[in-house]
Each structure stands twice: as C-alpha cells, then as structure tokens.
Amino acid sequence: MNNKMHLKEGLLINTESLPFSVRLWTATSVQIPFKGPREVKSFGTREYKYKKYYKYISRRG
C-alpha cells in the first residue's frame, strides 16, 4: 500500500487543493517531510515543566 494517501476524485475533500501541506493520518506510517529546524527547547524535562509552572510566583508591576 502506498503510505502516502492521495485522495481520489469524488472524495469529500481533496487535500492537494489546499494552499499548504496537510498532515493526513492513516493506519500506516506516513513520512512527514522535514520542514527545517525548530526552536530547541527541553520539552518533557523536569526543568522545563517546573520553570513554566512556576514562572510567576508573584506579578508585580
């Protein structure tokens, strides 16, 4: 099976007609094109969670 789903004519929506690439979920794995580097953040680490959570102990201004 082709792992990149192309919608046939007559289906309810044709993703290729949209002005940008749309990620379509299928039962098989889909190779998502690499879009370029994103901002590096230590998501999921203890530091990140706690820093975000306790960002404002007080809000003085």
Binding site: I13, T15, P19, V22, R23, L24, W25, T26, A27
Partner: peptide, 17 residues
C-alpha cells in the same frame, strides 16, 4: 478551516480512525 489546518490545530483523518 484553512487557518486551523495551517496552524496545525486540527488534522484530517479517515472516519474509521
């Protein structure tokens, strides 16, 4: 809908999934 798709807030999938 274009906005929601462009900003990856919604996604499309087959109904049975």
């Amino acid at each position: 809908f274009n906005f929601l798709l462009e900003h990856e807030l919604i996604f499309l999938c087959r109904e049975d999934l």
